[in-house]
Nucleic acid binder design. Sequence first.
DNA 1: ATTAATGTTCAGAA
DNA 2: TTTCTGAACATTAA
Length: 279
Amino acid sequence: MPELPEVETMVRGIRPFVEGRRIVSFAKCRCRYRPIAIAPTATAIARRCEGRTIVAVRRRAKRVVLELEGGSAFVIEPRMTGLVLLADPPDRAHLRVEWALEGDQEHNSLWFWDSRGLGTVRLLEPFALEAALGEVRLGPDALEMSESLWRLRCAATARPIKVALLDQKLVAGIGNLYASEILHRARIHPERPADALNRRQVARLAEAVLFILEEAIRYEGSTLSDGTYRNALNQAGSYQNAHRVYDRVGEECRSCGRGSSLRIVQAQRSTFFCPGCQR
DNA sequence: ATTAATGTTCAGAA
DNA sequence: TTTCTGAACATTAA
């Protein structure tokens, strides 16, 4: 389930092969399931992008952005199971979109592959881009948050801190897995109301967000037991081996040595934490 | 054979 | 205003 580190890994993986290349064609793939949600229509997208050069590849929160010459951009949202691939898709049945790239290099196609089909691909004009990616819709990127901004934003809601971390308007890029890992490093109980955190705890939270996300990026993200997440070359990440609490129920906490990971449910999602060190 | 669970986002309700 | 719930979907485990 691509969160910020996985999407950052996708972006870094495709950037050297995609930036500066011209799109020869855009097409929906023959897919065994219902067609992917793309906008506008496939033919309109093709008409607007074919012949254009991809001038930059960047990440915004959990989205991949392919900027085209002229200012429009593809916004790719992998959601649960979407992958952005340069090679070796896991199967053909779930291939959703193909961009053919001009030239004769190592990789001449970029694909969007998505098992569950919840992901989306949109081609947006500049004005719509700001509406889709701007700070009205999405909060500041998790890697851009300052300690003082964390203080302001935490003070503004009484929801449990774990639930608040998943609110993409409060902060963009953190998902269910990394929320648990971040709170464990910060030694904060996931049920603590965000506005009840003291100054020291918010400082630890700000540090933990950067530490955990940057560490996960170095490991190229987490590939869970279902194996869905892969990088641009269909290789697994390795951060799952470094998880402290996520999906480790009953395992002793390596930080405090006096508790083991526990699973609770918050807002209909699993939360994992160590009752020994998270208060 | 059914059912629950998985986690992201958005619309709509409380 | 803020917070919560359900639906979109394929796949796997119980």
